[in-house]
Design a protein around this nucleic acid. Structure first.
Lengths: 124, 124
DNA sequence: TCCCTGGTTCGACATGTGTCAACATAGACG
DNA sequence: CGTCTATGTTGACACATGTCGAACCAGGGA
């Protein structure tokens, strides 16, 4: 449960879904609980708009992106905000307000954790 | 729609979603088209029941699993069938009938492709 | 041949989800 | 203080999705 304590603002909700997740999908059949937890992350990335937002943040130079820089994804501004919230709730992004703007960054452990889920146990 | 009369031909739909997909999420912001294609796969895994089914198939000894071996996931059998169909449509699974039973296996390229999506561009 | 078992499809329903317009809030700046 | 700009929240609505029971198809034996 306790992983990275660096940032000043810590969402308790967000931490639930993150790193301490599950074995690779190919290792053994998932239990209901594991599936529930893991599905939340996949579901968060299962929407084109969210995927574009996440990709925009993940590929940002400084490791973070202002909402104003990534909100050109073809939907209204409230909708962008809604999707960013979903990504935050899923533990994939964190946000921080600095002055006028709000910056989003990728929760560091997430990418590695999800990638590990998809690795094959048999390595040729 | 069109399925009953289909000979051992390959569904063109299924192939669309598979391997030749997209760069890592962290490389650059996804285009709308890339996001649309990729989101389909994540969405397919974004349901707990489907995740359990997929995991059951992916972790099966013989590389394949009979429906009867994996349908104990807490929902009715028609629902299992429905989810397996979704996974097939997303290009994640393939199915084959042998005698009385129907066997599902993981589309080989999928796991590697999705894993690659989640790798960080910096590869040490 | 008839029936039984494994799987899929159909029809219907409740719930969830994406979307927008309108409103609310938080700083910056005069 | 007042106002402007950048985000988030609310309410409403259309549409997609998960679920089940019933009906349906495919093989394998008796």
């Amino acid at each position: 449960m306790s992983n990275v304590k660096a940032l000043p603002l810590l969402e308790p909700e967000a931490h639930e879904a993150v790193a301490p997740c599950c074995p690779p999908l190919t290792e053994r059949p998932f239990t209901a609980e594991e599936a529930e937890r893991t599905a939340r992350m996949f579901k968060a990335l299962g929407d084109p708009v969210r995927l574009r937002l996440f990709s925009a943040v993940a590929s940002a130079e400084a490791g973070e992106a202002c909402v104003c820089d990534i909100s050109d994804v073809g939907v209204s501004q409230p909708t962008v905000s809604h999707h960013l919230k979903k990504l935050k709730e899923a533990g994939l992004l964190t946000s921080e307000r600095r002055g006028t703007w709000v910056y989003y960054r990728v929760e560091p452990s997430v990418l590695a954790a999800m990638s590990k889920l998809l690795t094959t146990t048999a390595t040729p």
